[in-house]
């Protein structure tokens, strides 16, 4: 219990330290989206989203449910490709590389842009195999020792190693919800992505597990560009440096997190932050 309490306390501290607007202004731009639209069949889900996402920082997308924030997130690593009938328009660039370029291999793209999902979804395999899966399919480890190193360091980075080091061969589905989600983060890290997308990663977790994940996100931003979708404004305020507010498929307002929460320009953003839009 003491350990947990300490963690929560630490989280508080990190939150305070991230509240520095200057922290993000000098960041280079990593991802650029321009006029992104998404149609599901005849229904238009996104209306021309344009946004820049800074390198090695946490960008959060907030907004009421069904506002298109998850849809946009799934455009960034082309997960919408797997949905029948979904069409994406506009351009998204990762380091000047158009990710919807027909010559670009989506497999390669997803190795560079990892993703963590709303519900923890470990594969029905052992903890070790879960983490090793990505490096294995991409051929990133040349030997068993290489692989061991990747798995262990990924689990360390995800803050899970100490908890599972004695049972790496047990099924990943046997872990608690929060541990499962950190396993999924470790699994994503193991591929060595440059960008990590997180789709409401804490929505299925209890507050303590949420706090641990938030702390982890804050640590990861030193090495990764992170984009997180969240329905919790507090979470966005705690972990992100940049925030974008979505409503009804439109990007209403974006900016430094502190500005968005303290001086929202747009009326709709104000309403949402004050709890008038659910």
């Amino acid at each position: 219990m003491d350990v947990l309490a300490g963690k929560i306390k630490m989280t508080q501290q990190t939150v305070n330290s991230t509240m520095n607007p200057a922290d993000m202004l000098d960041r280079p731009i990593r991802l650029t989206a321009k006029d992104v639209t998404v149609h599901y069949g005849a229904k238009q889900a996104l209306h021309g989203i344009s946004i820049n996402i800074p390198d090695r920082a946490v960008t959060s997308f907030i907004g009421p449910s069904g506002c298109g924030k998850s849809t946009f997130l799934r455009c960034i690593n082309r997960m919408n490709d797997t949905i029948e009938g979904a069409r994406v328009g506009g351009t998204i660039k990762l380091d000047e590389q158009d990710i919807y370029d027909p010559n670009l291999d989506v497999v390669e793209l997803r190795a560079r842009i990892g993703m963590v999902f709303q519900k923890p979804n470990p594969f029905p395999k052992s903890i070790y195999e879960n983490v090793a899966y990505g490096p294995k399919i991409h051929g990133l480890a040349k030997s068993k020792t290489d692989m061991d190193e990747i798995v262990i360091s990924s689990l360390r980075k995800a803050g899970l190693f100490e908890e599972v080091k004695d049972r790496l061969n047990e099924p990943g589905t046997g872990l608690s919800g929060g541990q499962q989600q950190r396993l999924c983060i470790a699994r994503a890290i193991a591929v060595g992505p440059e960008v990590i997308l997180m789709d409401e990663p804490c929505s299925a977790l209890d507050p303590i597990a949420t706090a641990i994940i938030e702390e982890l996100i804050d640590e990861l931003r030193e090495n990764y560009t992170i984009v997180i979708v969240t329905h919790s404004m507090q979470q966005a305020a705690r972990v992100s440096q940049k925030t974008a507010f979505f409503h009804l498929g439109n990007l209403i307002e974006e900016g430094v997190t502190e500005d968005i929460f303290t001086n929202p320009v747009n009326k709709q953003t104000q309403d949402y932050i004050m709890g008038r839009i659910g």
Binding site: M79, T82, R110, G114, V116, N121, P124, Y133, G134, R187
Partner: peptide, 27 residues
């Protein structure tokens, strides 16, 4: 088999057949 498992594999950059063989079928 839940969609989330498939998404998990795709999100790691697995190809369709890798997803089917390594994730879907074992599950």
């Amino acid at each position: 088999v839940p969609r989330t498992l498939r998404d998990g594999a795709y999100g790691l950059g697995a190809t369709k057949s890798e997803t089917i063989r390594n994730v879907l079928l074992p599950a």
